[in-house]
Design a binder for these strands. Structure first.
Lengths: 272, 272
DNA sequence: TTTGTATATATGTATATACAAGTTATGTCA
DNA sequence: TGACATAACTTGTATATACATATATACAAA
């Protein structure tokens, strides 16, 4: 809590380096020890705000970890933790031996979150349901066999669903799943939630990770009819390959997202 | 579901909780002290690999931090750092008082990186150039005035460019910039790099962050002609709003990305 | 059966210390 | 002046310790 004495010359010499030596940082307030918000989170917010306000400028060096510790009355390790948050988020660039710098923002690109459909609907407070258009067991062939890495003829489950939000069809879904005779397919479960949950807890097929590819497309005649739109309208195609343990591929398929209802906003170098 | 404190029953009772008590983890090797790779990075990779191989299963609890420290001969703080990497990456879920669990993966959604065009071209070793289709000073009006938060009539720079990679047009770009009489516009600089670099180092207009929105679209006749494609083909539209310090909006515009040349892959819960 | 309490153990936060390793500025020597 | 060693920084890694806080469990009391 004790504000360390800062020499008057600091600001001048530091300025030549592009450092502001913390001048102005104090204006954003100090660390509230009584708060339940951890000190390292408070400090990382202060630094973020300093960049937004231009107190710390892109390309410039921020005060050293020791100096920040002195300014805010925190240990170097705690300061490191605050800085690390912003380094991980891509807002700062720490160079060993040199210092920590404000990154020049990449204004033409960024990170986008494509949310899980059902999760998104629930989090918005809306309802989501899945209308099952068809399920059947088919022999593996063509791209499905190739993508899943199975021999032609191996039995797969093929299904089509229409995912609806607020009573309106929003997403058209086609999936191929490994067929497991010991685990009967419960059609009732396909009315809600993601397909991958069918395998949750399965000893060998439980999903571990997935690879997704987001592509631009236009609605075909069939898709347009199902989604209540016109053919030729823009849409997203989200191709999905789901892996279980040992890199076993268990689901392959894709989602068609209506372009008039879906768009994706970039994450603001989010600090979690 | 009672749990006995009996040590002889540990393996069995633990199994009911989904814990594997580290059994099998050792098979993935230990920490190489001679390596230049930090211990916490090595451990986080071991844990990642354990999930991929199914030694640690989604929904299950991993060994406690103290136990991992015992197994691998590391202090608890070092173990925490390794675990924190995976928690931040969304692969693990740490619950205070309870334990750390392997997350059930979201297979229908994920994070996507839309790279900066010029940066991407350079990193691939290819060439990138920008063909300037037009620049002029225009009075602010309509959506541009609204998005930039300026009065109608304020002077703006309007420009159109065709971004090319490997000699082929890939992206069509339209931007509105705040006009600054003290900073003359150098048309020569518009042949390379992102537009926002025009303001880099500017005392008031230097970009600090940007908000992006990724939308699905189809090529119009003019766009198709410029990009050497047919009208009606799928494409991405990346709308961009660039902020300087104090939330001053300095650039607004959008990019049209050819759908046949661009698609975006999800990031694998990347651990940096 | 419910409620309260004690205990063991889990993760979360903060600090202090030590040393390693990379960068930069400076001073000395030829 | 130029080359080179070095001192004085910087961030990076690892450990130990303390306390706060959340959870599970066992067991006693009502």
């Amino acid at each position: 809590m004790g504000r360390s004495p800062s020499s008057m010359m600091e600001a001048v010499t530091a300025r030549e380096d592009g450092v502001l030596a913390g001048r102005g940082l104090e204006e954003l307030g100090g660390i509230d020890e009584g708060s339940y918000i951890p000190a390292y989170v408070q400090l990382s917010r202060i630094l973020q705000e300093a960049v937004r306000r231009g107190i710390l400028r892109p390309g410039g060096r921020i005060p050293s970890e020791s100096e920040l510790g002195r300014i805010f009355g925190l240990s170097r390790m705690t300061v490191r933790r605050a800085v690390s948050l912003l380094v991980d988020a891509g807002l700062l660039d720490a160079r060993q031996g040199s210092g920590t710098y404000v990154v020049n923002p990449r204004t033409d690109g960024g990170l986008f979150l494509v949310p899980d459909f059902h999760e998104e609907m629930l989090s918005r407070g809306g309802t989501s349901s899945a209308r099952l258009l068809g399920v059947r067991v088919v022999p593996a062939a063509g791209r499905a066999a190739e993508k899943l890495g199975v021999k032609r003829g191996r039995r797969l489950i093929y299904l089509e669903r229409l995912l609806e939000g607020e009573g309106e069809p929003l997403v058209y879904e086609r999936k191929y799943l490994l067929y497991d005779k010991s685990q009967p397919l419960l059609e009732g479960e396909l009315g809600h939630g993601p397909v991958s949950e069918l395998f949750a807890g399965h000893p060998r097929y439980a999903p571990v990770r997935s690879e997704l590819e987001l592509k631009a497309t236009v609605l075909g005649k069939g898709e347009a009819a199902l989604l209540g739109r016109e053919a030729g309208e823009p849409a997203f195609c989200l191709e999905q390959l789901v892996f279980a343990a040992n890199d076993l591929r268990v689901i392959w398929g894709w989602l068609i997202l209506r372009g008039d209802r879906f768009s994706f906003r970039s994450l603001q170098a989010e600090v979690r």
